[in-house]
Amino acid sequence: MASKEILKIENLTTYFYTWAGVVKAVDGVSLDVREGETLGLVGESGSGKSVTALSILRIVPRPGKIIGGKIIYKGENLLEKTEGEMQQIRGKEIAYISQEPGTSLNPVFSIADQLTEVIRRHQNVTKEEALKRAIELFRIVEIADPEIKVWNYPHQLSGGMKQRIAIAKALSCQPSLLLADEPTTNLDVTIQAQILELMKNLKEKLGMSMILVTHDMGVVAGVADRINVMYAGRICEVASTKTIFRNPLHPYTRALLEAVPNVALRKDKLKIIPGTIPNLISPPSGCRFHPRCDFALAECASTVPPLVEIESEHYVACIRAKEFTEKTVRGVKR
């Protein structure tokens, strides 16, 4: 399992310089993606998951700015590349599926236009070949009548179909790493399952690595190999999916799991996490979760807990993590 990392992020810091103040959306995030794995990036809305994904591609929208850290992709730091070099990487090496399938396709161009454009940007092929390839991709993402559908415009297609096309577009140049930002959030539950299944299969087939961003523990449960839990711009727990579900150590991870109906540890007690995600302009000091944490000590407000390996392959950023392992999970007050 200790395979090579395809992507290694160290201390990534991305801030938004707004009128109201500096939004510390991503504040010292480190994570790695191993070759061939699916990494789940989980956290509440506003925790900085999308900004992390956009930082990897260096397309953080204004007034956002990456101000520090390293993003090592296949041994090279992406933050040291020129814009031209990045354009060669985007879509070809690292592809991105955005959060909103409905709006991620340009409404005024046909699907054929948009797909062939990307294919021809990264591969030296003629228009006809690119079109053929687009139609093939439609088959791969299981769209019926690809020869006709490819000429449609986005508004003529359903949400599920658009998401399939977004996937097709992302896969068009056989990327090594796929950043899927909540690829199923805005879809019906049944279509959600289909799309997840499809992505899982395609990932295997093409041997890609993937970062699956979501706020839904249910989604990552079936798809991710490992999970990074993110809270208010920082990573708070990293472990294999199995460990996260069986033995979550960070209080935030536990709260997240209890907030999910179908994986709640106890069916009768579906909790919501009290409080709201903090304002990232002036985030809480010390452990950012402390105002909402049931286990907070005075110390939590002053020290930033580092991410430490509590057991093999299980990292937790909580000063009380050790205690939680000593007692059984059930023994801790919930």
Binding site: I89, R90, G91, S98, K169, A170
Partner: peptide, 10 residues
């Protein structure tokens, strides 16, 4: 979003 997506595709 489609502008972000266009940028993301290189």
């Amino acid at each position: 979003d489609y502008i972000l997506a266009a940028r993301a595709s290189g």
